[in-house]
């Protein structure tokens, strides 16, 4: 299947209409320690497989979307 992103607002679009926003991460509490914050900021699961990630539809509806994608095959997994 071609690598297209199904934008809930705009329909299936070329990924080049989007800006890739990285894997979904959870920020630590504001009061967490240096290790927790640096782990969060600088380390990545960098999944070779399915991961949840953010995409911003720059050329379309200008919304951030959460997409589940297989980073090896580019398959988008519908929830």
């Amino acid at each position: 299947m071609p690598f297209l992103i199904d934008c809930p607002n705009c329909g299936r679009r070329s990924p080049y209409e989007f800006k890739f926003g990285g894997e979904c991460k959870r920020a630590p509490d504001p009061g967490a320690d240096v290790k927790a914050w640096c782990d969060y900021l600088y380390l990545y699961e960098n999944m070779s497989g399915v991961q949840d990630e953010w995409w911003y539809h720059t050329m379309g509806c200008r919304s951030w979307l959460k997409i589940r994608r297989n980073t090896v095959t580019h398959e988008i997994i519908e929830e």
């Binding site: 990285g22 782990d39 600088y42 380390l43 990545y44 699961e45 960098n46 999944m47 070779s48």
Partner: peptide
């Protein structure tokens, strides 16, 4: 990062 997963850690890599 595949090695990192085997070790149960993460690396600062994309």
């Amino acid at each position: 990062s595949e090695i990192a997963r085997m070790l149960g850690v993460k690396y600062p890599v994309v």
